[in-house]
Design a binder for these strands. Structure first.
Lengths: 201, 201
DNA sequence: GCAAAATTGGACCTGCAAGTCCAAAACCCG
DNA sequence: CGGGTTTTGGACTTGCAGGTCCAATTTTGC
C-alpha cells in the first residue's frame, strides 16, 4: 500500500532530500523555496509532490530526520566509545572542528526555532536527537566511572544534561557571533572538571 | 528631520512594539502577520507603515531590541550584584522561574534562528545582548574572587562564556522538551563547581 | 512485448500577506 | 482660531510561493 518505489524513484527521493538539506543549510529554512530545491536537484514540481504528497512540510520533516541522524554520525566513532580520556578529547576536537567548519550553516538552526513549533513531528525529531545524544554522553560518563577515571559520586545523567546544554548553547552562540569560544570553553571546562574530580576522589 | 513624534504618536508606536512582541512570543516570528499585530494592538496598516517605514523588518528590529533589553532587566537586581552566594542562588532561581513560566514562548527563539540571518541589524542586537550578559556574569565571578569566595586561578571570562552557553542551551532544550532539567543542571553544577573550587584553593 | 504502474515535466490556479496610496480626522502652536 | 503637520483608516495593488492537474514517458513484472 504505502510501498511503491522503484530503484529510480528511491534515488530521486534521496536526491531531493539531500539537495534540500544542503540548500537549507546554505540559506536557512524559510529562505528556501520549492523552486530552489527543484533547481538545485534537477527535479520538477511534479516530482516533489509525488514523493512528498503533503508538500513542503513533509519534505522538511524528511530533511530534519536526515540532518539529525547526520549530527550523531559525525561524532562517531568517538561518541559511542567514550571510555578513555584520549577518546573524550578526540570527541571534543571533532565537535569543534565540525562546527567551526560549518560556521553559520546550521542544520538544526531551522529545526529548533520554527520547524519545531509548526510541525508537530519536527519537535519529536529534535527531542529524539537530543535524547540519543545525551544518553550517549551519560553512558560515557558511567563507563569512565566504572574504570575509576571519573569520581563515582558524580551524577552521570545530570552531568550529561548540563554538557549537552552547553554544547547546544555553544553552537547557538557560534551562529550569532561566528566564534567557537563558547563551545570550546564549555567542553574544556566540563572535561577538566570531570578529570579533576577523579583525582580528588 | 528624523524627529517628529507627538506624545500620542510616541504612545502608539510603543503600543505597536509591545503588542507585536507579545504576539511574537505567543505564536512565533514567522507565524505573525502584520494583520495580527493590527488586530492585537488596535491599529491600522497606515499606522504601522507610518511608524515603521521599512515595514516588517524595521518593526521586527524594534521588537528585538525591546525583548533583548527585557531579558536582562528580568534578571535584575541580581545579575548586576553577584557578590554573595545568596545572590547567585537568587539569580539562579529567577532564571529558572522566568523560563519555566515562559515555557515555549521564547522571544529569542525567532531572533536567533532566522531574524539573525536575514536582518543584519538583528544579529548585532543578539550579539550585544550576549555580550552584556556574559560581561555581567564575568564581573560577578571576579568580584567573588576578590572576596575569596571563588578560587583566584579560575578564568572568569572563560567560565562566564561556558555558563552563558549552558544557559542558552538550557533554554533551547526547554523550548524543545518543555522541561527545565537542562537549565537547572547547568546552573547547579556550574555554581557548585565554583563554590567547590573556593574550598579547594 | 505488453499492460499496469510508477515517474516526470511544466502550465496553471489560488490565496495570502507585504506594501502603496490617499483622503479624512486629530492635533499642535502661535 | 486657523494653517500646517501629524496621525489614522482602509481600500487597492502586487508578487510570489505553495499546491493542483494532467498528459507524456519510462519502468516493471509477467
Amino acid at each position: 500500500m504505502t510501498r511503491a518505489l522503484t530503484r529510480k524513484g528511491e534515488a530521486t527521493r534521496a536526491r531531493i532530500v539531500v539537495g534540500a538539506a544542503a540548500e537549507i543549510r546554505e540559506r536557512g529554512v524559510d529562505e528556501v523555496r520549492l523552486e530552489d530545491v527543484m533547481a538545485h536537484t534537477g527535479t520538477s514540481k511534479g516530482q516533489l509532490f509525488h514523493y512528498f504528497p503533503d508538500g513542503k512540510e513533509e519534505l522538511l520533516l524528511a530533511v530534519a530526520q536526515h540532518e539529525a541522524d547526520q549530527v550523531l554520525l559525525d561524532q562517531e566513532p568517538m561518541l559511542s566509545n567514550l571510555t578513555t580520556w584520549p577518546t573524550w578529547l578526540a570527541w571534543r576536537d571533532r565537535l569543534i572542528e565540525r562546527y567551526r567548519a560549518q560556521g553559520v550553516k546550521c542544520p538544526l538552526n531551522g529545526l529548533l526555532g520554527q520547524t519545531g513549533r509548526r510541525a508537530p513531528g519536527a519537535q519529536a525529531i529534535v527531542v529524539g536527537l537530543m535524547w540519543r545524544w545525551q544518553t550517549a554522553i551519560a553512558e560515557g560518563v558511567r563507563r569512565m566511572q566504572s574504570t575509576g577515571d571519573i569520581a563515582p559520586d558524580i551524577d552521570a545523567d545530570r552531568t550529561a544534561a548540563a554538557l549537552l546544554a552547553g554544547i547546544q548553547g555553544g553552537v547557538l552562540l557560534l551562529l550569532s557571533t561566528g566564534r567557537t569560544d563558547h563551545l570550546e570553553a564549555v567542553l574544556d571546562l566540563t572535561i577538566d572538571s570531570l578529570r579533576a574530580g577523579a583525582r580528588t576522589a
